[in-house]
Design a protein around this nucleic acid. Structure first.
Length: 360
DNA sequence: AACCCGGGGGC
DNA sequence: GCCCCAGGGTT
């Protein structure tokens, strides 16, 4: 390592020792706990994931107990965090460890990387934090810090960019204390070298930052991708028979896979309740249910995600016969809906039930 | 390489 | 509104 690289890595570690956040998963070398924290924190802020981490560790003290749990239980615990494939993959990986590694978390990089849901970043994080192995992490913080320090114009969301930044990160890596170094550059990015309006006047690396010397800090990191947002239109039926409503499990490779929700009719545009009643799906769901009465007030919501805008309408429908319906759906009392893992969208409906709204 | 997958917070 | 967050999997 040359003198310049050495100065940067030492400065990052010194900064870290003065400014680091104290977090529960930093107090341990237990790979299981570190793994749980890393999966939870993928694309998720510490403040948002903190309570989930505590609950997961309390509920599943070790990886075999997690492996032996039901997926429904894990998804319920994950409810509200988003990116639910993380929870499904977490379960798969726990079973991999139980069945292929004798219940002992693997301690080699390639074995860690073979776990479902563990990619390059997470494998490097676990390998360095738990086992002191010399693998540099490359996450959003590292992309930002390095792209600014070296004024790198290669887009980070390309394979060339990924390769370039990974190589650079590994050159800077302190092989004597890879875990400390990795933590330091990530915390530095999260606290000092923040995405918008960083305070470069107090930055210990200001005099070596090429982006700053060019007054172009805000231009880094460079990205090429622009995630296009598509619209979807969901019409949910809250079918009541006495104190009960009906749920089904989402299957197939789509949003909220394996979560539960009310009977759904998706349309290619926003439609009225009259138009909805003319669809074949509506008739298919509500056949032989006795008398149908639809509440005049519907609940509508615009649910905004990073890659989707879902316009959802909810209709409360009373029926007088559920002998066929209860065989096609999960019959549950409305007070027990909370036993099922549901999306934030459906959750908000149950929170606001009874209050009519426009798309809001 | 492009696309898919959630939800929340900061400005 | 827009951007970002301790990314990974699928096609």
């Amino acid at each position: 390592m040359d003198q310049h690289s050495l100065f940067i890595s030492q400065t990052l570690i010194e900064w870290y020792n003065l400014n680091k956040r104290e977090l529960p998963w930093r107090e341990t070398k237990n790979p299981f706990k570190i793994w749980i924290s890393e999966i939870i924190l993928q694309q998720t802020r510490v403040a948002q994931g903190y309570d989930y981490y505590v609950r997961f560790i309390e509920t599943f003290p070790d990886i075999v107990q997690l492996a032996n749990a039901d997926e429904d239980t894990i998804l319920k615990l994950w409810q509200g965090l988003g990116y639910y494939s993380r929870a499904r993959n977490l379960h798969t990986a726990a079973k991999q460890v139980r069945d292929n590694f004798g219940g002992k978390f693997p301690d080699r990089y390639e074995d860690i990387l073979s776990l479902k849901g563990v990619g390059d970043y997470t494998a490097a994080a676990i390998a360095s934090f738990a086992f002191d192995l010399p693998y540099a992490v490359v996450d959003g913080n590292v992309f930002r810090v390095l792209s600014r320090l070296f004024a790198i114009n290669t887009p980070i969301d390309t394979s060339a960019g990924k390769r370039l930044f990974t190589d650079l990160a590994n050159e800077l890596l302190d092989k004597e204390q890879p875990g400390e170094y990795n933590q330091s550059i990530m915390d530095f990015g999260a606290i000092q070298c923040v995405p918008v309006s960083p305070d470069c006047t107090i930055c210990p690396l200001a005099d070596r930052c090429l982006a700053l010397s060019h007054k172009q800090v805000s231009l880094y990191p460079v990205k090429q991708g622009k995630t296009k947002v598509k619209e979807r239109f969901f019409n949910y039926l809250d079918i009541h028979f006495g104190p009960n409503t009906y749920l089904h499990k989402r299957t197939g490779n789509d949003i909220w896979k394996n979560l539960y929700e009310l009977p759904l009719i998706e349309t290619d545009k926003d439609i009225t309740i009259e138009e909805l009643q003319n669809t074949e799906t509506f008739h298919a769901i509500l056949q032989n249910v006795g008398t149908i009465s639809i509440h005049p007030m519907s609940f509508s919501m615009k649910h905004v995600l990073s890659h989707r805008i879902i316009y959802a309408r909810f209709y409360r429908i009373e029926i007088t016969d559920d002998t066929e319906l209860k065989d096609k759906y999960i019959k549950t009392s409305t007070s027990s809906v909370g036993d099922y893992a549901i999306s934030r969208l459906v959750d908000r409906y149950f929170e606001q039930q009874g209050k009519p709204t426009l798309f809001s």
